[in-house]
Computed example of a mutant assay.
Amino acid sequence: MGRKSCHPFGTLRMANDERARLAPRLAAQAIARFRICGGSVMLRIVAGNANASVIMTAERCAEFTFAE
């Protein structure tokens, strides 16, 4: 039996304007004290291991959170 996997990349826009869903430091625009750290913040699907890039994004998000 085959399996299909889905990696949703690039589903959240990150910028400093009102149309963006995320601020550049991964903070959600509409919800206070809420950060997004996953594949959805990346513009393109990576050519290598998607898990490694998501882990790197999560580590960077943790740095942003502890810096505040």
Rank of each mutant, 00 (worst) to 15 (best):
V46L: 00
Q29D: 01
L43Q: 10
I31W: 08
N16F: 07
A32R: 15
A47T: 02
A15E: 08
A30D: 14
M42L: 15
F66E: 06
M1V: 14
R3W: 04
F9M: 07
I45G: 07
F66I: 10
V46K: 00
G39C: 07
A47R: 08
V54G: 06
L22H: 01
A30Y: 06
H7R: 08
E59Q: 14
A50E: 05
G38S: 08
G10L: 04
V54F: 11
A47Y: 00
E63L: 12
M1N: 08
R21T: 09
S5G: 06
R35L: 14
A27C: 09
M42A: 10
R33I: 06
R21K: 07
D17Y: 09
R21D: 05
N51P: 02
S53M: 11
A27E: 15
T65E: 03
A67K: 09
R33G: 15
F66P: 00
G48F: 03
A15F: 05
E63M: 09
T57H: 00
S5Y: 11
C37G: 15
C6M: 10
F66L: 14
R19F: 11
A50Y: 04
F9Q: 05
M14R: 08
R21I: 11
E18N: 07
A62V: 08
A58L: 10
R60F: 05
L43H: 08
R35I: 09
V46E: 00
F64E: 14
A27P: 00
L22C: 05
A58C: 14
A28Y: 03
A47S: 10
S40Q: 06
S40N: 06
F9K: 07
T11W: 02
V46F: 00
R21Q: 12
R44Y: 04
G38A: 10
V41Q: 02
N16D: 09
A47W: 00
M14Q: 12
C37Q: 05
S53E: 04
A32M: 13
I31L: 15
N49C: 07
M56G: 14
I36M: 14
M42P: 00
D17R: 09
L22S: 01
E68F: 03
I55C: 12
A28E: 04
S5R: 09
S53T: 09
M56N: 11
G48A: 07
R3N: 07
E63K: 15
T65S: 08
R60W: 03
G10Y: 04
I36G: 02
P24S: 01
R33H: 15
C6L: 13
A62W: 01
A52E: 03
L12S: 10
G48M: 02
H7K: 03
R44L: 10
I31C: 13
A67D: 12
V41K: 01
I36A: 13
P24K: 01
V41M: 05
R3F: 10
R35P: 12
C37L: 14
T11I: 13
C37I: 13
E63D: 14
N16G: 14
T57Q: 08
